[in-house]
Design a protein around this nucleic acid. Sequence first.
DNA 1: ACCTCCCGCCATGCT
DNA 2: AGCATGGCGGGAGGT
Length: 874
Amino acid sequence: MFYSGFNCLLVLNQENLFFEPHKRGLMKTPLKESSAANIVLAEIQPDLGPLTTPTKPKEIAQGEPWTPTANLKMLISAVSPEIRNRDQKRGLFDNRNGLPEAKDCLHEHLSGDEYEKSQPSRKEKSLGLLCHKFLARYPKYPNPAVNNDICLDEVAEELNVERRRIYDIVNVLESLHMVSRLAKNRYTWHGRHNLNKTLGTLKSVGEENKYAEQIMMIKKKDYEQEFDFSKSYALDDHVIKSNPGPNGHPDMCFVELPGMEFRAASVNSRKDKSLRVMSQKFVMLFLVSTPQIVSLEIAAKILIGEDHVEDLDKSKFKTKIRRLYDIANVLSSLDLIKKVHVTEERGRKPAFKWTGPEISPNSHGLSPVTPLAPSDLEGRRSSKENCAKNLFSTRGKPNFTRHPSLIKLVKSIESDRRKINSAPSSPIKTNKADSSQNPAPFPSKMDQLAAICKMQLEEQSSEPRRKVKVQLARSGHCKPVAPLDIPVNAELELTAPSLMQPLGVVPLIPSSLSSAVPVILPQAPSGPSYAIYLQPAQAQTISPPQGLSPTVCLTPPSTAMRSKDSTDAPSEKVITECTKSGVATRPGGVLPGPEKQGAKNQDREPAGERGSKRASMLQDSGSKKKFKEDLKGLENVPATLFPSGYLIPLTQCSSLGAESVLSSKENSGTLSPNHRIYSSPITGVIPVTTSELAAVNFPSFHVTPLKLMVSPTSMAAVPVGNSPALASSHPIPIQNPSSAIVNFTLQHLGLISPSVQVSTSPGPGSVPMSPRIEAVNVAPENTGPQQGRATRYDSPVLGQNQPNGQSVTASGAQQPVPVTPKGSQLVTESFFRTPGGPPKPVGSSCMDFDGASKTVGTLFVPQRKLEVSTEDVH
DNA sequence: ACCTCCCGCCATGCT
DNA sequence: AGCATGGCGGGAGGT
């Protein structure tokens, strides 16, 4: 079973070590630490050597040989022992080892066989590995104050790859706003500062585009096709069509972040091009789907425009798949997704599971709030609106940026909408209410309210957040917002979402407008401060089951095992995480042993579930079925998983805000627990969690009880340190409630051993876990990768990005960057930049208001944890 | 045999 | 025209 992936893993681990941003920063420079490096290199080379393509050896060989590359090598070398072993196993080691300097020459000197051996294996040249190397060069959370320019040529040279490959990586990173183009050949590294925001926006856009529905429809179709059901096609098509963008397919608009707009005019021309857009859409699919697992097939169909699934021409489909693999590799390197397999009636299909931070739908990627809540809606809306606002059509060629007038238009339109729509009344949130009630005109009021709420929350939670926010803003390139714009934006953010109807809304962005519509995200750096309330009614109403896969198994978990499975399996058939996946995809590369186990378990289950599924499915055709399932899920969920949701008092909430964030990572995902629960209890809850948990937690937990032991203290401690929010004030309390409940529940259920503590906090994202993991010191080989992974990413910033921007703290810590708020606190964050021109103030967004607005949310205990715990138990 | 996805041709569009 | 980008899909390595 030796997986080539193993290599990757090792590499990754090594990289992880390097990963600390700070260090990296140093590293990246070309260096000339050669002497030392050289030595190391010799050892390392095997790995690196492979990278150089035969064709290009010259580049590397000659000159400055080891500088930049050397650094990487050095880093890698650290891990060298492992690598060496690996190489030895392969037999490669010898060859390369001896000839560090001469890789170039190797092929010449070596015989065919030898040459072949010497050549880097395909895996060694994989985009994922390359991406890891690329990422290793830059800090996760770069100091904005520092020059973070990236010269593509240099990078390509240093990494010994064709520039074409670098484009692939950069394009994906660009889609996440982790880099932005400065000019030809030059990009600016932003790291993960904007990641949450971006993800939040993407989620909002994805929701607006009804991707969840599309996924469901596709699944349904597939399922029906299997059975020759032709019934629901019409519906499906309908849905899909409605969503599709301009060309009949969901189309594209490139979502931009304020401050992250393409600066180079040239860039704009291709904004709408596929890789970037595909990447965003792909990410959206994860964020929107409940299980957060997306199969390539479905993703490809949606990206192509599944309206014509039937006509799909194979070549197009294949091409799409190829592209998705490229994207997936990069995303995997970012630890945002990991490869898994979904077992369906038809068989096993490659899929990817979201392992990144969970994000609230709000444009404020930060807020932990549940998606369903009105706030979510608002967020969506805002994002959507933003999209609409920013129109820029890329499509044809257009380059341009949104015209100010357009923005104003949009705003006015939005305000009108608000007026028209009455805000949902959720008691909760003043925010909402405010937003909804107070139209644009009162932005200031809104802000105030939000501010107040925030303040209150913050008081409880902690100040760190602010810092965070500030930092974020900075990172966001906040600029002072124009007075006019600000108010409007604020309103939009707050109110708009509420107004918008998630499902009902058709993609605002008309295809005609342009493929690329920049979306302005309100950046709410802070997410922490939201109070979360649960409004079941709303939640239910609002979101239909998204992630449900048609195939999802409904079977109720009878036994403990079942329950475990149920959590996972139900929603998505069976998801098998590939250990190997690490190879190809592998950000974390390897899955920890635990995950594997989990996978096995899952596999088993599927059969049974499948049967049940089918039966149920047969009975009802698609949608009905789903609904039923959902209902069942709802029923079941509480029963089985019961801890699905909690209402959290504000006080708690306040802390929760932060905490939720923590949990959000795992849980939150896009959807907060409630969302999942309500929408599709079964699928949502169970499936998603499991895998994620496994992925994230497993390593540590999996290892042993020790991990499990994670002990509350550790948990509490960790979060605090890591997540800003937690750290802020009530770390313990916050977690306690939910975690305690969860634990209790789990224990009751027998899912976890008493000793084990589940923390709410852990998010899907590896991040949160990492700290713990590190502390624990767990993982053996298998885990190692993840650990490394976690470590690497996390280490830079403990709080890291996580999910709600919590990372802030971490970032703050890491980065020396001065946090001083620019302009208005948050405001600065959002604004448009026209290419070439200075950024304009877009919205207001900024604010914390986001958070405030979001006040309403439900905290649910992460079921995932449950699953996880289960696995752990196993 | 299928899954992945590297590789690099060549179109596109800016300079 | 030259160069930077990046779409695209053949075809090969891996499993």
